[in-house]
Simulated assay, not measured.
Amino acid sequence: MAAQGPRTRINAWRPSVPGIAEVLHAHFTDHAYPAHTHDTWDLMILDDGSVDFALDRRRHGATGTGMVLLLPPGVSHDGRTVTASGFRKRVLYLDTTVLPEGLVGSAVDGPILNDTLLRRRIHQLHTALGNAGDAFEAESRLSLIRERLRFHLAAFRTRAPGNDASRLAAALRELLDSRLTTGISLREASGILHAHPTHLIRCFKQTYGLPPHTYLTGKRIDRARRLLLDGRRPADVAAAVGFYDQAHLNRHFTRHLGTTPARYAAARGGGASS
């Protein structure tokens, strides 16, 4: 019986979200990275296993799913498996518009962050990046992650929504309503309203009780319901209300209403039921 070779599985892509140069999902069982550097920040979470790595000639180890690893640009590092089962990781390669190079020293001093909130936010961002059409959500989640990382690197303190919260939230809601079909990026909204992206998100959530990407999706679902009950085809409805494609509509519609757009449309005109 022939020996089984090392099991390595990799999925990598470049998303259309400003600041993210690359996304990498990988499972390594018998692999060692040689010493190398990147031009980007490497933001990594483990889904299973353990990893041993050196950063600037100091060795570190990480095990389990509770920690976040942040490797800065321009600093030599390596990486290797620790056990026979290897490790599974998800990595975001972030450019220096997300974190400036001036924070490299702080990251070298403490590349492992024990922060469950940050870890959860990174997981949510990976989920959004894996779904075509959720770029606005991904951009919003990246903004919150950036804020949390800067907090850890002692370069930022959260700005609480002030007296302008309601005004900014109302202006953002009006902007989202006007761009329901065409969509808008968080960066563009921030430029139009002259407010930091993370501050916009916090003001909106404080005022309306949900983040702006959730509000936008809900508005699109409401409009989709009306068009489906008017007899429009789900594929046409998806484009009409701003979803990326029919699969994008199906995913969010089913999560909101517990049924697919096609089934919802098929039930129209049935009258009241018990």
Results as ranks from 00 to 15, higher is better:
A32Y: 06
G110D: 12
R120C: 00
R268F: 11
L99R: 02
S143R: 03
R255K: 14
T127H: 08
V241Q: 05
L92K: 02
H213A: 10
A170H: 10
S85P: 00
A195M: 06
L227P: 01
R7V: 15
V82Q: 08
D164R: 13
T65A: 12
R159E: 08
P111L: 05
A35R: 09
E137P: 00
H77S: 05
S50V: 13
T97V: 10
A266R: 14
V104A: 01
Y215M: 05
E22M: 14
H36F: 10
R232P: 00
V17G: 09
C203F: 08
I45H: 01
S140I: 08
G66P: 10
R119E: 03
P111Q: 03
R173M: 15
L92Q: 02
A84H: 10
S76P: 06
A128D: 13
G183F: 09
P197D: 07
F28C: 06
T81P: 01
V108D: 02
A240I: 02
E101V: 03
G66Q: 13
L186V: 08
W13R: 11
W13N: 11
A107T: 00
L153V: 04
T29Y: 02
G105K: 04
S273Y: 06
Q246Y: 04
A265Q: 12
N131R: 13
T182G: 10
A84K: 13
L180H: 03
P212S: 06
L210C: 11
D78S: 11
H252Y: 12
Q246S: 04
R167K: 09
R80Y: 04
I145A: 01
H27A: 09
D30Q: 15
R225D: 01
R88N: 05
P234C: 06
W41D: 04
H60G: 12
G79M: 08
A262H: 12
V82N: 05
L55P: 07
G102I: 02
T65G: 04
A135N: 06
T217V: 14
F151D: 05
A135H: 07
L176H: 08
S274N: 08
H194K: 15
L103R: 03
P15L: 11
N250S: 10
L186K: 07
H199I: 07
D222V: 09
A239C: 00
L92H: 00
T83C: 01
W13E: 12
A3D: 11
T65F: 03
G218C: 04
N250P: 00
G19I: 11
A84C: 00
L227A: 03
R255D: 13
A170Q: 14
L168V: 13
T97Y: 00
A107K: 01
Q206Y: 06
G242P: 07
R146N: 03
L149W: 04
D39M: 07
P111V: 03
E188V: 13
T254P: 01
D164A: 15
S50A: 15
R57L: 14
G102M: 00
N11L: 15
A26N: 06
Y264G: 06
G269L: 10
H60P: 10
S274G: 11
G105M: 00
R121D: 05
T260V: 08
M1V: 08
R148I: 02
D245K: 06
L168C: 08
L103C: 02
A2H: 12
A26Q: 11
T83S: 12
I112D: 01
M44E: 11
G258D: 10
S190A: 15
L125I: 03
T198M: 03
F28V: 06
T81K: 07
R255E: 14
A155M: 01
F136Q: 05
S106H: 06
A169G: 13
E174G: 15
